[in-house]
Design a protein around this nucleic acid. Structure first.
Lengths: 203, 203
DNA sequence: GTCATTTATTGAACACTGTTTATTAATTCA
DNA sequence: TGAATTAATAAACAGTGTTCAATAAATGAC
């Protein structure tokens, strides 16, 4: 049988990625497979290989969509003072991980085999996240150097990322719930305070 | 064929775990499998199931060993002032992740299927890590409440953990190398400063 | 010492996985 | 209408975790 479906390559790609997201959200990353995705859209698994190089390629394209969604949510937070904006970013970031645990897991926990390598455009997208942070930090301390901004952004965001990871994997061991917000706010506040004070004392 | 090997259940367990660690370090978590482990120690894959409930159980026992090793290294750091001890912990933690990337990955990134659940003894071990931090924080601020210590320890350690994760997955995007130490030290210093200052202002 | 019982070990099977390739069926073009 | 192209797939391959019946060795009873 052949060419009875009326989908273009682009349409098939979109169809597959949407189905993958649906499966991901419903069944989890562990049960995501080429055969399941294909069955879901009425194609055979082999057909997916006309549109994706391999399963990891499909995952990367999923991750690109997840990342775009995350970045869009960060952008939509609106204008705030730099410090408030950074806190809002942190809360949004962790809330996103909680809202889309499987997509977030695929984005940050999916390991690429050594034979393959993560495409540059995906890493560039992740780096754009850091750029957002750097921009806010630059607003806060206009005379900071680029390397200082880069380092501060990463140090700060490692903390936020750590909260997201450990919360998602249930490794925080905190009694009830809702303490994450407090953690994130103190994390950002203390770090920004420390940054500001140390710059002053150096000047 | 049967009972030609002279290994007790305990000896077989140890044999399998050691082989698994060797494979893990050499080939990576992705290539760790029951058949490979069994072949490595001259047994069939089915034999492993007389000693482990399933593959996840084997992984958990590997993780327990990794965790014991990590905790031992933290304990061996010797007596220091609380603040210096916490910095040393942070450096040691991230260095451990870099030294044993695959074991660390299995410990913190291996996802347990929903049908199974992580054994309590493993989570208890992870919690012991937080207790170490809490103890140092208590030395620093003796009048802090238990819940405050718990929250501060976790907030602080999320940052350290985040550095370890993102460094290991190459998602820090920092130019050369060696910047992690500086990140960790500022991370700890700023947070402890912020904690101290905010307590003062409240008193 | 012989026979029955227990126990350790495994080969083979099952249902999965990602991936490749030859084949087929439908469309397009001459 | 006939030939070339193209879309799609079934089937195969090597791998995975896991189960289970079969088997060979050790042990226990008499």
């Amino acid at each position: 049988m052949a060419r009875r479906r009326e989908h273009s390559r682009e349409a098939l790609t979109e169809l597959a990625l949407s189905a993958a997201e649906r499966l991901l959200d419903k069944q989890g990353a562990a049960l995501l497979s080429t055969r399941r995705i294909a069955a879901d859209i009425g194609y055979s698994a082999a057909s997916l290989y006309s549109v994706f190089n391999n399963f990891d390629d499909l995952c990367w394209q999923l991750n690109a969509r997840t990342l775009a969604m995350l970045l869009a949510q960060l952008d939509a937070l609106g204008d705030k003072s730099p410090r408030e904006a950074l806190k809002a970013y942190a809360l949004c970031y962790v809330a996103f991980a909680a809202r889309w645990p499987e997509r977030w897991s695929l984005l940050f926990e999916h390991r690429t085999p050594e034979t393959l390598q993560v495409p540059a455009w995906l890493n560039d997208s992740i780096e754009r996240l850091f750029l957002q942070i750097e921009r806010r930090l630059a607003e806060l301390v206009p005379d900071a150097s680029a390397t200082e901004l880069a380092l501060t952004a990463r140090t700060l965001w490692c903390g936020v990322h750590g909260v997201a990871v450990l919360q998602l994997r249930g490794k925080l061991f905190l009694p009830p719930e809702g303490k994450q917000e407090q953690m994130l706010i103190t994390l950002v506040d203390y770090h920004l305070d420390g940054w500001g004070l140390n710059r002053e004392s150096r000047a």
